[in-house]
Amino acid sequence: MSITAIPSQAVNRLKNGTILVLWGSGSSPDDVQRFSQELSSYQCNRVIVEHFERLILSGHSNSVFDVVLSNLIEPHMATHSFELLSEIVRIMKTSGVFCGKEKSDSRISSNLKLAGFCNITAEPSDNSFCAETPSFEVGSSSRLSFAKPAVWSLSDALVDDQVELINEDDLLDENDLKKPDAETLRVCGTTGKRKACKDCSCGLAEELASDEPVKPTTKSATSSCGSCYLGDAFRCASCPYLGMPAFKPGEKIQLSERQLNPDL
């Protein structure tokens, strides 16, 4: 394997950088050693060689490597899984360079994007690719320009005795404690709402028009058959006493305006 096979994007970052070389099955140890020795000629600060299957188990710290060269040693038998790419982006520094070869044509570009890489270039003719890590640390956060600071907050150092509370009795005055007049709370007898209905007969329409309480009028009904007092069994279909209990003959019964004008 010749050092000239290293992509130019990575060559520019080798000097004084920490480099990780990943190799897979099929590559001879002699080729791996020769490749790492050639890298040292670029005045790298440190070169670490790791097998694909051991990378995740190695437990490298976050943001360690400037350049990662993966599967560049023949016969290029390794495949970059999404799990492997996620581990690589974690251990790389910001704006780091990641170059390699894939075993065969696959979804390497899509997996690189999903793992968090950017500025991805892929060459289908030889299954090679290069990508960069973002210019910010993985897991970092930043305040948005339109984010507004909190209007007020209480310090964690304050104790209950230092916090001035509002007396809830001061929030009410004498008018709030007065019991409202029942006449002012009247609602329509038909709709149950404060607004009078179209054919209002309970007096609510007149009350709202005059802004003064109006008591519903009542009328005294007179029986034409003389048997209304006996109960519903002796009353006609239009009897104003229909539905009312029996009463004594001559007893005065007061009916409301609504009862005297039933909806037919």
Rank of each mutant, 00 (worst) to 15 (best):
K179F: 09
G226L: 13
S63F: 11
F117W: 00
L84C: 04
A147D: 12
K178M: 11
E257C: 06
V64P: 01
V159S: 12
A150S: 09
L57T: 13
S145K: 03
F35R: 13
K101S: 11
K101G: 01
L185E: 11
D66W: 09
S128V: 06
L204K: 05
A5N: 11
A205P: 01
E123Y: 05
D31M: 12
N71G: 10
V67D: 00
L255F: 01
R235N: 08
D160Q: 12
R258M: 08
F35Q: 11
S238K: 12
V32S: 10
N119G: 03
G192V: 06
P124G: 08
W23P: 00
F52W: 15
N62Q: 13
F65T: 02
T191C: 13
S36P: 05
G116F: 06
E206H: 01
L172D: 11
Q259S: 07
D126Q: 00
P180M: 02
C118M: 10
L14E: 02
C188R: 10
N62H: 07
A131Q: 04
C202W: 05
F234S: 12
I6Q: 08
T79R: 11
T184H: 11
G17A: 15
C44W: 05
L165V: 14
S27P: 03
M92I: 07
G192P: 07
C236A: 12
L171S: 05
Y241P: 00
F234D: 06
F35H: 13
A115V: 08
Q162G: 06
C200W: 10
L22H: 05
D161F: 02
E137C: 08
L154A: 08
L112K: 03
P134E: 10
S153K: 09
V67G: 02
L85T: 06
V32N: 04
K179R: 13
F52A: 15
T191S: 15
L22I: 15
R54Q: 14
R186Q: 11
E83S: 13
N119H: 09
P75A: 10
K178F: 05
P262S: 07
S227L: 15
G226I: 12
W152H: 08
I48K: 15
A237L: 11
L208A: 07
D232V: 10
F98P: 03
C239R: 07
D30N: 14
A182F: 08
P124K: 05
A221K: 08
L55R: 11
E207I: 00
C130Y: 00
S86Y: 08
C200Q: 04
N261R: 09
E132Q: 00
I88Q: 02
A205M: 14
L208I: 14
V159E: 04
S61E: 12
G139C: 04
E87N: 10
S109N: 00
I6S: 07
D31A: 15
L85D: 04
T217Y: 02
P216K: 04
S27L: 09
T191H: 01
L85F: 07
G96V: 10
V64F: 09
I108E: 06
V67S: 01
E53R: 15
L57I: 14
